[in-house]
């Protein structure tokens, strides 16, 4: 993993430099025109958030039942990244909505639950910061419940007919749009992997440092 990290980080850098050009070359959507291009960053950021939530939830479960500090660090990193990518989705979403729906925000099922998920994972960060000793277990509980609510978000648009486009739109993209879309998705996923690795390593170093301090005091 260590050897692969440098090239991987470089690849992500190149992909994000190339992404605007790829997106610019994609065809215009028939009804929304230029505005629809935000889709290439909006949807991948949610993909990345859901992946981060999945990693956080599974790692939290593992930590809770097996008491593994390693899994805890992974859950912490993934929880923070879920907030980061969620924030990207919550910024790009209203920008798109303002142009195509005429309003910045709409209280419909998908938007509401997405906002709640974001808040859930922010609360996970807060409990780690202010919960004192033992807060890793508390944050694990938040991660697990966050993961449990996620399917409702994904299904929300399909169950409740809302203003938000259906999730089934992705497989029906025309080839000219699907190419740039999956390019952006892979860029976001790789970015997630790179950031996750960085954050887990940082956590591991912090833990090692804490251990050294404790050894020094003894």
């Amino acid at each position: 993993m260590k050897k692969a990290f440098g090239p991987l980080a470089a690849l992500v850098g190149v992909m994000f430099v190339a992404a605007p050009f790829v997106v610019a070359n994609a065809p215009y959507e028939s009804t929304m025109g230029l505005v629809q291009k935000i889709f290439y960053f909006h949807v991948p950021s949610w993909f990345a958030m859901f992946t981060a939530i999945g990693i956080c939830g599974v790692a939290s479960l593992y930590h809770l039942f097996k008491n593994s500090p390693k899994a805890d660090r992974l859950a912490e990193a993934a929880g923070e990244l879920a907030v980061l990518f969620g924030l990207m989705g919550l910024v790009t979403g209203p920008l798109w909505g303002r142009k195509s729906w005429g309003v910045w925000w709409q209280w419909d099922a998908k938007l509401t639950i997405a906002l709640l998920l974001e808040m859930t994972f922010i609360s996970g960060i807060l409990v780690r910061k202010y919960g004192g000793p033992g807060s890793d277990k508390l944050a694990a509980a938040v991660g697990i419940f966050g993961l449990a609510v996620t399917p409702f978000v994904y299904e929300a648009v399909n169950i409740w007919r809302t203003i938000h486009p259906l999730t089934s739109v992705v497989p029906t993209l025309s080839a000219a749009m699907a190419g740039p879309f999956w390019f952006c998705v892979s860029a976001f996923m790789l970015l997630l992997v790179v950031l996750l690795t960085l954050r887990v390593n940082l956590g591991a170093r912090q833990a090692a440092l804490d251990e050294l301090y404790l050894a020094q005091e003894d």
Binding site: I113, S123, L126, Y130, G134, L138
Partner: peptide, 21 residues
């Protein structure tokens, strides 16, 4: 939260986002 610090504040902070649905 019984054994956590600042439990009074943390209870609604953790609880509300999850039970709002």
């Amino acid at each position: 939260l019984v054994r956590a610090r600042s439990r009074d504040v943390l209870l609604p902070i953790l609880l509300y986002p999850i039970i709002i649905p």
